[in-house]
Design a protein around this nucleic acid. Structure first.
Lengths: 115, 115
DNA sequence: CCGTATCCTAGAAGATACTG
DNA sequence: CAGTATCTTCTAGGATACGG
């Protein structure tokens, strides 16, 4: 029997870690091919990207479409259930933006590419 | 120059990891003593708790009050700025609760103590 | 292009003991 | 009670090479 003391623990299991929220965030704007995701998420390795996608798939957050073409074409998308996490992702994005703006106004040498 | 591609990255730096959101969540309901937090967050070690609190302090999310008593009494609280993360924490809690309820209804052997 | 298989390492986290 | 200091363990994530 798995025990949770707070709901937030489940959220962290599913969307926590260094990359998952970032991946879902990118997919929120529409389906993407593997190579697109790799490009959109600088610093992530192919292995880790696929690994995280598999876990998000297992948890019902994203889906996978294989077009069975040659050369291969595969797309990932946010499932209906995954879309229920839209608010979390959105709020994390905007809070982060504000945090960066704040630190920047204090003279920190940081920058945000996202507009 | 530190570069971010999306705001969400900053959020993850500050509130990501296994424990931080959980700690802030507990503090949202009011200031707590170190020992209270230890009790409220099963599984966390004292070392890790203090460590995470120090980082949250450095990032302006929580504050620390030392009452200079003997035996020692110290309280941690969410700063005004930290309260701006209230929505994130709240949404993560409720999404997680629903996720657990969903999985439970599917027969998974899990339980949530939080009511 | 998409994915797998290895190997490897940094750092997060656990265990324990010890101070004021 | 609050906090520090070590030491150890563990695993998420990184690097690289290869295959359909």
């Amino acid at each position: 029997m798995k025990q949770y003391t707070l709901g937030i623990e489940a959220t962290l299991e599913i969307l926590g870690g260094k990359w998952k929220a970032l991946i879902v965030c990118q997919l929120m704007s529409g389906p993407k091919r593997t190579s697109e995701l790799e490009r959109l998420i600088p610093g992530i390795s192919q292995k880790v990207l696929i690994q995280q996608l598999r876990e998000l798939e297992r948890d019902g957050i994203v889906g996978r479409i294989d077009y069975h073409q040659m050369p291969p074409k595969v797309e990932y998308y946010v499932t209906d259930y995954g879309k229920s996490a839209n608010t979390i992702i959105h709020v994390m994005c905007s809070w982060g933006r504000e945090n960066i703006a704040l630190r920047k106004s204090r003279g920190e040498d940081i920058d945000l590419l996202e507009k």
